[in-house]
Design a protein around this nucleic acid. Structure first.
Length: 505
RNA sequence: CGCCCGUUCGUCUAGUUGGCCUAGGACGCAAGGUUUUCAUCCUUGAAAUCAGGGGUUCGAAUCCCCUACGGGUGACCA
């Protein structure tokens, strides 16, 4: 049975790169009939952010990524918050010390910082590794008695992994193939902090093992520490899971991975939902609030680094799950494209259930103080305008005139299309409209065309003139569809009022 | 700077067992059409000498090596 996990740290809002990682884990688990676990990695108390965990859970839920186990869900392998598993980790660190794979280190953070700065000033780099550990303050250099004394005296200590001096660490990444790192390039990472908490590295390995995780699918930024994790599994005597390191999501412009700042700078959301920073009250926009459908958002995100291998692009969660495979994930980072994101939403909007669109549009109209419009009418309007909308919110700029007579007429359009004889010509057409018994688009079209021919009117100016009177601008769907939807009475009022208004100018 | 990972149209990518690739699709862009608008729709087009250079081979985007460039990482953070 395949078991995978998504393990975010609640240090702020989850950004879309994280959502994508969760998504691929979800696809992988569902495809294999396995389980998806949510684990909160909150071993750093200093970076705790109020509301972040709740935000993460809600965002994932909105995105349609559902977990089989996790905090607030439960499961046999809980608790699923590392802060609640605190007591578990120490024994494994102790076991590593006993087996000679780890050691106590008494150097303070300040001492190490000073050392690092001094070495760097001289042009060297400092690493707590096989070269330096014998000169530092730890249980490898101190006598057993001294170590015991220090610990008994309550002196702060950390536990570091004893990395072998000369060994090639090799592992296979599902996406990248064989990855090799020489141990001489690795440092003796702290696995247990002086505050009594494990570091990510230890907690991660212990939990993945205890929770019987079979595949670790995470971002590429973890690739450099994977050899360390391999070592940890080996020293603890456990089988390592398989690894897959996902390519990063890059900034739309320039260089580097997508970051929090990019969204506001370039005008698109970097987060699934809106987030208010509890410290600064700074607001970061979200896909949800920007009008994206979760289905479109997820579809767009999935295609940043993966594709089904055929030419499908619009795919449901189920279709993508069915088609998903880790060996179809690309190796290189994907640059986020805001235009394509909009396109995805546009495609979903076209197929969205009409009754949902109607109620969403109704909400928007309410804000414009337009109420008590029947659903039938709203539906007709949506059908006429939705193909040119990317978001439900676009219905307002594209369709408000169906509910509200124009209060002014676009100057540029009037100048371009309104002629002195427009008053007479459109007046004639309006008279013919009065006689019309069956108010249908094609019939109205015939009436207009007959009149144009009969009186040798300039066609383009007539069409556009009528459009301006009805809409207030020279845009919108087919003219005769507008007339039909508006209905005879309203159309005639707009024509007459409009002729009076513009004609006087 | 060290180590690791990567490099096909502006962007996302197809191409994964070398020949069907004079490199395909999508977004975006441009032009034309829908003898009326338009932010829709349709058609067409421009757009990658497959980072560069060496090999291997009858044949390489696909295999190997080098270089360049890009990215990640280098905390008692995850």
């Amino acid at each position: 049975m395949v078991r995978v996990r998504f393990a975010p740290s609640p240090t702020g809002p989850l950004h879309i790169g994280g959502v994508r990682t969760a998504l691929y884990n979800y696809f992988f688990a569902k495809k294999q009939g396995g389980k998806l676990i949510l684990r909160i990695e909150d071993t750093d108390q200093t970076r705790f952010v109020e509301g972040a965990e709740k935000y993460i859970q809600e965002s994932l839920k909105w995105s349609g990524i559902h977990f089989d186990e996790g905090p607030n869900i439960g499961g046999e392998f809980g608790p699923y918050r590392q802060s609640e598993r605190k007591e578990l980790y120490r024994q494994y660190a102790d076991q590593l010390i006993e087996d000679g794979y780890a050691y106590y280190a008494f150097d303070t953070a300040e001492e190490l910082k000073a050392l690092r700065e001094k070495e760097e000033a001289e042009g060297h780099k400092f690493q707590y590794d096989s070269k330096h550990r014998k000169d530092l303050n730890n249980s490898l250099t101190l006598s057993k008695e001294e170590v015991e004394k220090k610990i008994a005296a309550g002196e702060n200590f950390t536990i570091r992994l004893l990395v072998p001096e000369d060994e090639e660490i090799v592992f296979t990444d599902i996406i990248r193939g064989e990855v090799k790192v020489h141990s001489s390039n690795m440092d003796d990472k702290i696995i247990f902090k002086s505050d009594g908490m494990p570091t990510y590295h230890l907690a991660n390995i212990v939990d993945d093992h205890l929770m019987e995780i079979t595949h670790v699918i995470r971002g590429e930024e973890w690739l450099p520490s994977a050899p360390l994790h391999i070592l940890l599994y080996r020293y603890l005597g456990w089988d390592a899971p398989e690894f897959a390191h996902l390519p990063l999501l890059l900034k739309p412009d320039g260089k580097g991975k997508l970051s929090k700042r990019d969204g506001d700078r370039l005008g698109f959301p970097v987060f699934p939902m809106e987030w208010t920073d509890p410290q600064t009250n700074e607001i970061s926009s979200g896909y949800k609030e920007s009008g994206y459908f979760p289905e479109a958002f997820i579809n767009m995100l999935a295609f940043l680094g993966w594709n089904p291998g055929d030419e499908r692009e619009i795919m449901s969660m189920d279709e993508m799950t069915e088609a998903f495979s880790l060996d179809r994930v690309s190796k290189s980072g994907a640059r986020f494209d805001a235009d394509k994101a909009k396109w995805f939403n546009h495609e979903y909007l076209q197929k969205y259930p009409m009754e949902k669109l109607v109620s969403a549009f109704k909400e928007l109209l309410k804000k414009e103080n337009i109420e008590e419009v029947c659903d039938d009418y709203i539906e007709k309007v949506i059908k006429a305008i939705k193909d040119r909308a990317d978001f439900v919110e676009d219905f307002i700029p594209h369709g408000l005139y169906f509910f509200k007579r124009p209060e002014s007429y676009d100057e540029v359009a009037v100048k371009k299309h309104w002629r002195e004889n427009s008053v007479t010509n459109i007046g004639l057409i309006a008279e013919e409209f009065e006689k019309c018994e069956e108010w249908k688009a094609d019939i109205l079209e015939n009436i207009v065309k007959e009149q144009i021919e009969k009186h040798e009117m300039p066609g383009g100016k007539i069409f556009n003139g009528i459009r301006i009177l009805l809409v207030g601008a020279s845009s919108g769907p087919h003219l005769f569809d507008i007339l039909e939807i508006l209905g005879k009475e309203e159309s005639l009022i707009r024509l007459k009022e409009g002729i009076a208004n513009i004609g006087q100018e």
